[in-house]
Amino acid sequence: MMALNRKDLLGLRGMTRAELEEILSTAEDMKSILLSDTKKASYLQGKSVVMLFYENSTRTRFSFEFAAKYLGAHTASVAVSSSSVAKGESLIDTGKTLQSMGVDVIVLRHPMSGAPHLLAKHVSASVINAGDGINEHPTQALLDMFTIRQKKGTLEGVKVAIIGDILHSRVARSNVWGLTTMGAEVRVAGPTTLMPPDIEKMGAKVFYRVEEAIKGADVVMGLRLQRERQQKGLLPSLREYTHLFGITQERMRLAKADALIMHPGPVNRGVEISSDLVDGEHSVINEQVTNGVAIRMALLYLLTRRNRDAVH
């Protein structure tokens, strides 16, 4: 079975359940390679993977780099400061240059929504979206889905509450697309000024009271709250946010007894989620990081599979 037959991974919007299933099950195999002593496979032998990052994200970049290296690929990283985006070499030209150097996969992190889609149109190399603007962060959502499935055994009917700045969250968008496709129930909650319009049409249930969103949930996911939201007037203060939407021990009592605590990181301890929960027994935040590498190994494997099969 070969459900995933794409050049690029741009987002989870429009992906089929079969495609998502294949990524998640491939990641199971990759996780065993990752947890083995040698951490070595040769699926990407002779392939080149470049991390093209227009935004700083050490954890995502390392995660992709390790994933590519464990599979035997050559890797390189290009960091471009976002201030130079407007005046510097165009994204398309940069992509074509990398391609001329023999790059097979470009992992792109970009502050503007749709940038990976633009790049993918102009290069024959595979493009993986490692986060674009406020649009999607598909590998993060996939690792979240993988983590939930490992813990709960299924995604079907699982109730996932995503709390915080939904408007600016690419993690939330990708999770809504992916989780609803897999049959989970996604609830989103946050201040009205940080809720995108008509998100319920994407399949999520919208709550403006955090208690209602958490009630009976199997998973509670916090999102990082940027301080600049307060400066832009979207929030009166972080303190008030924490008061209204902070994920606390007390509020977690409304969730199922075995509910998981998740967060894409980095965490603002005491703002969107209390410190004791981050380090508590229900937190799977560190496991999410491990699973992130497995998911990225799976994607690198699956996206380069077509070429590999064609060559041999």
Binding site: G133, I134, N135, R170, D198
Partner: peptide, 13 residues
Amino acid sequence: NEGYMSTVLGLKG
């Protein structure tokens, strides 16, 4: 335009 499509595409409305 702010609405469903801006939400879907992750473009500020």
